[in-house]
């Protein structure tokens, strides 16, 4: 099918199979490789993007379900003032080891804090429990979130 997707503020015309998940369009058609494939089962959070400002996993959801909606990937996060703050906090707290979960987490934290700028630790932990980090950078990610909350 042919469809138009709004990604990072631009409209893209895309030709793809009807059942193509959003992630594959982002990575292969649009060459936006920052959004990661982790499980393809919506269980790990590596593929998180923002749709209409809310966190959305992209590995299994069909691209065709997001026609006309504003999709923001990690590559577009730095255009958001809050996204920049989150990225800076991740840098300040060195909140990554291998970094494979990082782009999904930066997107998720940006999404969570845009909905609830004063989210407390319990809310953040609950909001991020769909995101795996196997290196154990969680305490640093939580510190990064606290840093952003303290600034808001």
């Amino acid at each position: 099918m042919r469809m138009a997707l709004r990604v990072n503020g631009q409209t893209h015309q895309i030709d793809c199979a009807d059942d193509t998940p959003l992630l594959y369009i982002l990575r292969n058609h649009l060459k936006l490789k920052g959004t990661k494939l982790g499980c393809g089962l919506e269980q790990c959070g590596a593929c998180a993007v923002l749709v209409g400002g809310k966190v959305q996993l992209s590995c299994a959801a069909l691209a065709a379900d997001f026609l006309g909606q504003e999709i923001v990937t990690i590559e577009g996060v730095e255009a958001l003032p809050l996204g920049q703050k989150v990225q800076a906090a991740f840098l300040d707290q060195t909140a990554a080891q291998c970094g494979y979960c990082t782009s999904g987490l930066v997107v998720a934290v940006t999404g969570l804090l845009s909905q609830d700028p004063q989210a407390d630790q319990a809310k953040i932990k609950d909001g991020l429990k769909g995101h795996l980090c196997r290196c154990g950078s969680h305490p640093r990610v939580l510190r990064a979130v606290q840093q952003v909350v303290a600034q808001s």
């Binding site: 990575r27 292969n28 060459k31 936006l32 490789k33 920052g34 959004t35 990661k36 494939l37 990937t73 990690i74 590559e75 996060v77 730095e78 990225q87 991740f90 840098l91 060195t94 990554a96 970094g99 494979y100 990082t102 782009s103 930066v106």
Partner: peptide, 22 residues
């Protein structure tokens, strides 16, 4: 000050991991 090679690329989704080769 803490320094981690390539972290600035990782937080921006710009770091190329093996599955990103194209």
């Amino acid at each position: 000050s803490p320094f981690m090679r390539d972290l600035d690329q990782m937080v921006r989704g710009r770091f190329c991991y093996l599955p990103d080769i194209d």
